[in-house]
Structures are given as C-alpha cells and as structure tokens.
Simulated scan of single mutants.
Amino acid sequence: MSRTRRARRTWGALASAAAVMLTVTACAALPVEPAALPDDFIPEPSASPGDGTGALSPDGFTAAQRMTVRVRNVGCGFIATGTGFALDSHTLVTNRHVVEDAKRITVTTYDGRSIAATAATTTTVADIAIVTTEESLGTAHARRAQEDPVEGDVITVVGYPNGGRLTSTAGVVLGPTTDPKGVAVGTVLASSASVEPGSSGSPVLDEDGRVVGVIYAKNYSNQSFIVPISTLNTLLSEESLFVPEASCAPNQYQATP
C-alpha cells in the first residue's frame, strides 16, 4: 500500500474548536457538533485511483468509475439522489439517508443503464445501506481495504454530486472524530475532500484504488465525513445488524431481506 506525504503539522484534538452546523450531503441541514476542522491542507497532485497502465477499460472509464452508480430515491412526495458503489454484480453500498422512505429506488450505471432495486436494508450503527438488484450492475466491483486511512493520507472521492455527472475529487484525511450526527458507533473520519448533495454514498479510495470509506455528510466549511472501511467491513460480516428498509408505499416498493 502506497503512502503519501503526511501533513506538515499535527493538528490538535478535532473536538476542541467551535461547533459547526452539519449538512447531510443528500438531505437537510442538521444542528450538530463537531468541532471546526482544519481546512488548509493542500495535497500534492497525484494520479487518480486506477490511472496506472491498463487501468482504463476500452471505453475509457476506470474501474473506480465503472463500479460507481447514481442512486435515485422516488419517495412519497419527494425525489432524492445519492451515490453508491458495487460490492458485486447485484449488491451495492450507499447511505441509509439516501434510501429512506422510498417508494421506488433505481440506480444508473456509468454507461447510462437504469436498473431497478429489488431490496434495501439499513443499519442504525452507521449511515449505511445495502441495495440489491436483479439486473447485473456490471463487472467492476469494489476492492475493499482492510485498514482505515490515517491523517494526511490523500484520498479520492468518486460520485455524482448534485445528481449530475460522474466526477472525482481529491482531498486529505484530517483525522478521526465523533459522528457529528450522533448516531454512529465508534469514530468516523473527517477529510478536506469537497463534496455536494448527491455525493452521499460515494466510495472513498486510496491511491491504489481500494475503498477506504464511504462519504455520508459535509459541514459548512466544506469538510466531508466518512464512514471508515473498518466499520463497513464489520457491518458486512454481521448481516444481523441490517434490517429491511420500510417503504412509504409498500404496495409499490417492497424492501425485503
């Protein structure tokens, strides 16, 4: 695993500064804590994950782009968008708040295919949801890291900000902090990667193209928050922590195990 140059100085405890208002990246603003975080990291330019020789598919997309999908939640009286990424041909990860109160969930692949979800399960341990599909998502799947990134590591976020085009943005891990929403078990990570509404559920990648976390929120200082890969790996190994997500119109969309 490659390592990037560490940040030039060690920052103090993340919770020591004034509280900020947190904006959930696909939802409404919430009054939350955590402390204001340093935002003056300037990472050195680096290759996007998977940009090495042979990483591009014949159509010019990287593996990271091909595994990333747009998630569309048509609810009862609202439409929300987010991002997700494929674990295998029929399973993807996104955020719980992206699929909440859905009447119908569809995902769109990098090449424009629209695929209907057949089930969605969520957990209260973290802002994570698992969505399944009958139609194949494709052959590009996430390679999950086994260790969380550390302060100063350069990361790349791939997603669909504002429900628009597939984009990539770079940033630096600022360090661990408590969940600003106050619901996650354990710590989450803060980063300088700039994200927007619609980026929720985006994979966070290290320089080797491995998933090291999942974007789920941002604050008004444009710092983003990440469910670390250690949490995701634990959740995926404990299926009992997930429950079917209730639909706002059960006769039209039924989330089943």
Rank of each mutant, 00 (worst) to 15 (best):
M1I: 15
A7C: 12
G12Q: 09
A13K: 13
L14K: 01
L14S: 08
S16G: 06
V20K: 08
L30S: 12
L30D: 09
A35K: 04
A35Q: 08
A36Y: 09
P38W: 10
G50T: 04
G54K: 03
A55Q: 08
P58F: 07
T62M: 11
A64I: 05
R70N: 04
V71I: 11
N73R: 02
G77F: 12
F85M: 08
L92Q: 00
L92H: 00
V93M: 09
R96F: 06
R104W: 00
I105L: 01
T108L: 04
T123A: 11
V125L: 10
T139V: 14
A140L: 11
A142I: 06
R144A: 13
V150C: 08
E151Q: 15
G152E: 11
V158C: 05
P161Q: 07
L166T: 08
L166W: 03
P176V: 14
P176T: 15
T177Q: 09
G186H: 06
G186M: 07
L189T: 05
L189G: 01
S192Y: 02
P197M: 10
P197D: 13
G198N: 03
P203M: 06
G209N: 03
G213Q: 08
I215W: 01
I215F: 02
N222K: 12
V227G: 01
V227Y: 01
S237M: 11
L241D: 04
F242H: 02
N251Y: 11
